[in-house]
Amino acid sequence: MIEALTGMGLSAAAGLNAYIPFLVVALIARFTDVITLPTSLTWIESGWAIGIGSVLLLTEVVLDKIPAVDTVNDAVQTFIRPSMGGLMFAASSAAEEVDQSSWMAENPWVGVVLGVVVSGLVHAGKSTARPAIDAGTLGMGTPVVSTAEDTASVGLSLAALLAPILALVGLVILAFVLVRLVLMMRRWRRRRQGGSSTGRVPGYP
């Protein structure tokens, strides 16, 4: 159960920002004894992996805060975030200090699939809501929302590794917020469509 909560928390964090949970896991594994990655995944905590992840994170943080550019970035991340979610779930479920389930250890593909699904759902909610936020706030809300997402990704990642029960609470809150944003997006689209469909040519009834 603990490894499932940890994996779900990290996967959800990857749905918001693919590189934050990666770096959190990499740095904690490299400099602490909180988790010990299996031999097949020790490359995550290598210097070159941390360096590349840092550059990618910096790029993501900048692009995600620019209106319109963030939508393009989300499209590119459609494949990256779910893949990272699968990797993070697999890494956490296989870590010696986290893994308490022999069944998960014997069926590692389950963790990968769950990670891809959780991360993909979060990414879908984020990328669906962003265009409405960009348009509805004339771009001014974009950096604010992006910063909130990055903060949530950091919080979820740390909670998943250090206090998995808190990660569950964070997942519930995140799901609630994403659903509200998606509903807001749909209402905004309906208003736009309704406004355009009721338009009349001047001089005609």
Rank of each mutant, 00 (worst) to 15 (best):
M1R: 11
I2C: 00
I2P: 00
M8Y: 14
G9Y: 08
L10H: 06
L10M: 09
L23Y: 02
V24R: 06
V24C: 11
V25M: 13
V25T: 14
A26S: 12
L27E: 08
A29E: 04
A29R: 06
R30F: 08
F31M: 05
V34I: 15
I35L: 06
L37G: 01
P38T: 14
W43A: 13
I44T: 05
I44R: 07
E45Y: 00
W48Y: 05
G51N: 08
G53K: 02
S54C: 02
E60I: 05
D64V: 08
K65T: 03
P67H: 11
A68K: 14
V69D: 01
D70Q: 03
R81Q: 10
P82N: 10
M84N: 04
G86N: 12
L87C: 09
L87D: 14
F89D: 03
A90F: 10
A91K: 11
S92A: 15
E96Y: 11
D99N: 06
Q100L: 14
S101E: 07
A105N: 12
E106T: 01
E106I: 01
P108S: 14
V110S: 02
V110L: 11
V113Y: 08
L114S: 12
V118K: 00
L121P: 03
K126L: 05
T128F: 08
R130P: 08
A132V: 06
A132M: 12
A132W: 15
G141P: 15
T142F: 04
V144F: 10
A148R: 11
E149P: 04
E149N: 09
T151V: 15
T151I: 13
L156K: 05
L158V: 14
L158K: 08
A160L: 01
L161H: 10
L161T: 09
L162E: 10
P164T: 13
P164V: 12
I165W: 11
V169N: 04
G170R: 02
L171D: 04
L174D: 11
A175E: 02
L178Q: 11
L178F: 07
R180N: 11
L181C: 07
M184Y: 14
M184L: 13
R190D: 03
G194I: 01
G195V: 00
G195S: 12
G195H: 09
V201D: 12
V201L: 15
P202Y: 12
P202D: 09
G203C: 03
